[in-house]
């Protein structure tokens, strides 16, 4: 038995390796950018990445929950768009106050997630298909509300959009970053310190086993899609702070960015393994790529996609090699 207990000790740091690699990549990109471009290596550049991607970070947090259970949520981008659309139309049209509109938007997003989770759990339909239907539904609802972009002029929203929170040494963040940070912290706490969080990991590890261990697998699955729906709606609210408009074509393809961020952050798409910190780093890496390309100036926007694709490839290959080694 003594030899067996040795086997465990070696593998503990193993689960942190993907996150470490992502962190190293981020630092390397930052340093390389700092050497190559004037005025790149400042704290504000990192903060700008947060400011520009706060909504993506919030959405990716929800996606992390779903992917950890071994599921996938394709509806997030559409739900983000729907949220901006509902918020903008209610505030601009009938002139509802934001403190009514925002909770309502969050409720709609969560309810959509809840229904999708229920369909997946109760009728045993593939998450891919159910959330695909959710994606169509939410996008369709956007176009039903209106096909044009609706500007948001509500003073509270514009105040949120224009507020700068000053930090030390001339650095600043927007309120959205604080919202995103709170979401990340709460989510990390839930994943690590609550039964729901552990049930998420267990379900992703082996749904069958989790069921036989008496864990509330069904409730967990419904919960993660509800969380993802909530995060998407909140991401939508934050995006409407950023854009000050509601539009059915907002956040097209954002589900891909969210999935890419989660994967680059070291979470396995099969579920059960990964950390929220990885997702944060994944979003940062994606954001920094765009910053680098904008500093480069001569490169066209489609290079973003190609670079993200190559990064995905590199990380997936790394995970693959890594998991092959731990198994043997």
């Amino acid at each position: 038995m003594t030899t067996l207990s040795l086997g465990g000790g070696r593998t503990i740091p193993a689960k942190y390796v993907p996150v470490l690699v992502t962190a190293c990549l981020f630092v390397a990109m930052f340093v390389a950018g700092g050497i190559r471009y004037e005025g790149f290596a400042t704290g504000q550049i990192v903060l700008n990445v947060f400011i520009d991607n706060a909504f993506l970070l919030i959405v990716a947090v929800g996606m992390t929950f779903v992917i950890l259970t071994g599921g996938i949520d394709l509806s997030v981008g559409s739900v983000v768009a729907l949220s901006t659309m509902i918020a903008a139309s209610l505030m601009t049209g009938p002139g509802w106050p934001p403190y009514v509109v925002v909770p309502l938007v969050l409720l709609v997003g969560s309810a959509l997630g809840l229904v999708m989770g229920y369909l997946i759990h109760a009728f045993d339909i593939q998450p891919f298909i159910v959330t695909l239907a959710g994606m169509f539904l939410a996008r369709g609802l956007c176009y039903t509300i209106g096909t044009e972009s609706i500007p948001i002029t509500d003073p509270t929203f514009t105040a949120f959009a224009q507020t700068r929170i000053d930090l030390i040494a001339d650095m600043w963040i927007s309120p959205s970053v604080i919202i995103a940070a709170v979401v990340v912290l709460v989510a990390a706490y839930v994943l690590h310190y609550t039964r729901l969080g552990r049930a998420v990991y267990a379900t992703g590890g082996s749904e069958q086993s989790a069921l036989l261990m008496g864990l509330p697998v069904g409730r967990t699955k419904v919960a993660v899609y509800t969380i993802s729906g909530f995060c998407s709606a909140l991401g939508g609210v934050v995006l409407s702070f950023y854009m000050l408009s509601g539009y059915g074509l907002h956040a097209v393809g954002m589900e891909l960015d969210a999935i890419a961020a989660v994967v680059i952050g070291g979470t396995l798409l099969t579920g059960g393994t990964g950390f929220l910190l990885g997702t944060v780093l994944g979003v940062l890496v994606l954001g920094l790529i765009q910053t680098v390309l904008s500093f480069e100036g001569t490169l066209s926007s489609w290079w973003t996609k190609i670079v993200i694709g190559m990064l995905l490839f590199a990380f997936i290959l790394l995970q693959r090699l890594f998991s092959a080694r731990t198994r043997s």
Binding site: I72, L256, A260, S300, K305, G309, L312, F313, I316, L317
Partner: peptide, 27 residues
């Protein structure tokens, strides 16, 4: 051969392929 999950393996080309198509047409 590499043993990557299909949904991820093809996600790479889904993301990068759009960029490639735009590269071919120069946007």
């Amino acid at each position: 051969a590499v043993g990557i999950q299909p949904i991820i393996a093809t996600l790479i080309l889904m993301v990068a392929g759009r960029g490639l198509a735009q590269l071919i047409t120069d946007g």
